[in-house]
Amino acid sequence: MTDIHIGFDREGGDEEANLKRFRQALAHLLHQPELPDMLVLSGDLTDRGDAESFARLVEPLLDLPFPVYPLVGNHDTRETLLETFPNCSSDNGFVHYAIEQAGLRNLCLDTFEPGRHGGAFCEARKNWLSTQLADHSDTPTLIFMHHPPIVSGIDWMDPSPDESWIANFAQAIDGNDQILAIHSGHLHRSLQTSFRGVPLGVTGSIAPAVTLDLRQIDGATPDGRALIADEPPIIAFHRWNGITLVSHQLPVGDWPVLAHYGPELQPQIRGIFSQRE
C-alpha cells in the first residue's frame, strides 16, 4: 500500500476520510483468501509527518498477523517514522534496509529529501544500493521506493528525466540482472512501464487518486482541469513462487460477485484443468 496521507484533514480525527480508506483497505486485505507474508507501506504514510498522524496510522496496524515495513515519502519525516516504527532499520540517517524471505530479497529504499516534493538519491544511497546488489548478485531482488524514477506524463507530478537522483539510481542498478522489478508510489495512479530494462510498477494510492490527464500544465495559468478524484483505494499484491514474480493491483470496494464455484461450474473448471495435460 502507498500514499495513505493520514492527517490531511487535521480536524477529522478518527473520522478522517483517509483513515477510513486505510482501514477499509486493511479490512479488505485481511478478508482475502490468502493472507500476505508481509505488508510494505511505500511512503507518504502521513500528510505532514507529525507524531499525531503517525500514531493514528499505526493503531490499525497493531493486530495484523504479518510484519509491516514502512518507507519514507516526501510528506513524511524520517525521525517521526523511526520513532513510530522502532524496529525499522536505518543506516547513516536513511530509512533503507533489506528483507529476505522465501528466497526473494526485498530492498526498501529512501528517496526523501526534506522540503522537496520530488525524489532524491544521493551518492551515499547510491553506494548503499550498489553494495547490496553486488553482495547478493545471485539472489532474486525486488526494489521498493516511494518516487518512481520515470516520467509518467502526468506533468505536475513528474520529475525532469535528467535529474541527478535518477542518474544515480540508474547507475546503481545497471548490470544487476537479479532485479526482477521495481515498485513505487507517489503518483496516486497505477501504471506499468520499465526503467533501464527492469519492469517498473506504480501502485495506486490509498488516498484519493490523481486524475489521468496527460496534457502539459502551465504553472502560470490555472486551466480548471480536474486534479484529484475520489476513486477507490488500491492494494498491490506481489506473488513470488520461487521462479516468477507476478504483481496484481486490486481496487478496494464491495463489488457484486457474479459467479461462485458450485456444481454448475465444475465441468468448466475440470475442462480447463484437463487442457493443461
Rank of each mutant, 00 (worst) to 15 (best):
I4S: 02
I4F: 06
H5S: 03
H5W: 07
G7T: 11
R10K: 15
E11L: 14
G12A: 11
L19K: 05
R21S: 01
L26V: 13
H28S: 12
L29N: 06
Q32R: 15
Q32L: 15
P36N: 07
D37H: 10
D37N: 13
M38F: 03
S42M: 15
G43C: 10
D44K: 00
D44G: 07
D47V: 05
L57P: 01
E59Q: 14
P65C: 09
F66A: 02
P70L: 03
V72N: 01
D76E: 05
T77N: 01
T80A: 05
T84S: 13
P86C: 11
D91Q: 13
N92M: 13
H96D: 08
A98M: 11
A102W: 01
G103P: 07
L109A: 01
L109Q: 00
F112W: 14
P114C: 03
R116W: 10
H117G: 02
G118W: 10
A124V: 13
N127E: 14
W128F: 07
W128A: 01
S130L: 12
Q132D: 03
S137C: 08
S137W: 02
H146M: 11
P148K: 01
S152K: 04
G153N: 13
S160L: 14
S160H: 12
S160W: 10
P161Y: 09
S164C: 10
W165G: 06
I166D: 08
I166F: 11
A167C: 05
Q171R: 12
Q171M: 10
D174R: 15
D177C: 00
D177Y: 02
I179D: 02
A181E: 01
I182H: 04
H183N: 11
H186P: 01
Q192P: 00
S194D: 14
V198G: 03
P199H: 06
I206C: 11
A207C: 15
A207G: 00
T211I: 09
L214A: 06
A220Q: 10
D223Q: 11
G224A: 01
D230M: 06
I235R: 07
A236C: 11
F237W: 15
F237P: 00
W240T: 07
N241S: 10
Q249L: 13
L250V: 15
L250N: 08
P251N: 02
D254H: 12
E264A: 14
E264G: 12
L265N: 06
Q266M: 07
G271H: 13
F273C: 07
